[in-house]
């Protein structure tokens, strides 16, 4: 599904700041991959670059999604192909209601893919059902998107969007950080309920605790802009015990 080959990237406004230095990653359909690593290693940058954040520049390498090169595509075109990024810090959007925003999102995708738009009635039904499942306060959801939401509420809102947009590849950028144990469980349930043999996940996290709830197929260690080690869930446990010192020279 996702092939990242020898990816090099730097900060667009200051090319001397190199963040990814030859990163390779292969994700097949239905797999859950976890990226761990020390601060400043490039984890969040990778998540953002895959989605096309313009503040980074690709200097070398290739990224393919379902056989299609995506590096020249705008973020919205990547979304239309089935990619999704759950933000580490979801943005507050004043005056924009979640219902209206998600309907516009689905309509844009349908239009790009020349599919029929979902009716208001059908969408409202799905929306209300998902709001309840994710456990978002029904008063909050009537307010502007993320405005005045607590950190946990914002992350739940990201899971709501994930569930409604229904992507093929969900990139989760530290979705678990700043959550209490109940919220972590709800977020994990949200991810688990979305797992299927057609959908893949790339989860960026600092903490092994998320992996108590979401069982990954692969764990990668990202240090200095490269993947320096890969393994199964045991690798995360090892990191939990011994830290990253073996990988940092």
């Amino acid at each position: 599904m996702l092939k990242v080959k020898n990816l090099h990237a730097c900060v667009a406004e200051n090319k001397s700041i190199k963040i990814l230095n030859g990163l390779d990653l292969y994700i097949r359909k239905g797999e859950v991959h976890v990226i761990m690593g020390p601060n400043g290693g490039g984890k969040s940058t990778l998540a953002n670059i895959l989605m096309g954040r313009p503040s980074y520049e690709i200097t070398n390498g290739e990224v393919e999604f379902n056989g299609k090169s995506i590096l020249d595509l705008a973020p919205d075109a990547r979304s239309h192909l089935g990619m999704f990024l759950a933000f580490q810090y979801p943005v507050e959007v004043p005056g924009v209601r979640p219902w209206q925003f998600l309907k516009a999102s689905l309509d844009a995708k349908a239009e790009a893919n020349r599919e029929k738009k979902i009716s208001v009635r059908e969408f409202t039904k799905i929306f209300n059902q998902k709001v309840e499942e994710v456990g978002i306060n029904s008063n909050l959801i009537k307010r502007s998107l993320n405005e005045g939401f607590s950190g946990g509420e914002k992350k739940r809102n990201e899971i709501l969007q994930l569930q409604i947009i229904n992507p093929l590849l969900a990139i989760m950028d530290e979705t678990d950080s700043g959550l209490d144990i109940d919220a972590l469980r709800i977020i994990s349930d949200g991810i688990n309920s979305m797992r299927s043999n057609q959908r893949s996940f790339l989860i960026v996290t600092h903490y092994q605790r998320l992996l108590n709830y979401v069982k990954p197929d692969f764990v990668h260690i990202l240090v200095g802009g490269m993947i320096v080690d890969s393994g199964g869930p045991d690798l995360a446990l090892k990191i939990e015990n011994s830290g990253y010192k073996d990988y940092i020279k």
Partner: peptide, 24 residues
């Protein structure tokens, strides 16, 4: 960027933000 990652093109994203600002 946030709106774009949800499938809205740049022009539509700008319009939504302007409109959202006015709506209050």
């Amino acid at each position: 960027f946030y709106l774009q990652t949800r499938g809205l093109d740049l022009e539509t994203a700008k319009e939504i933000l302007i409109r959202g600002f006015a709506d209050e």
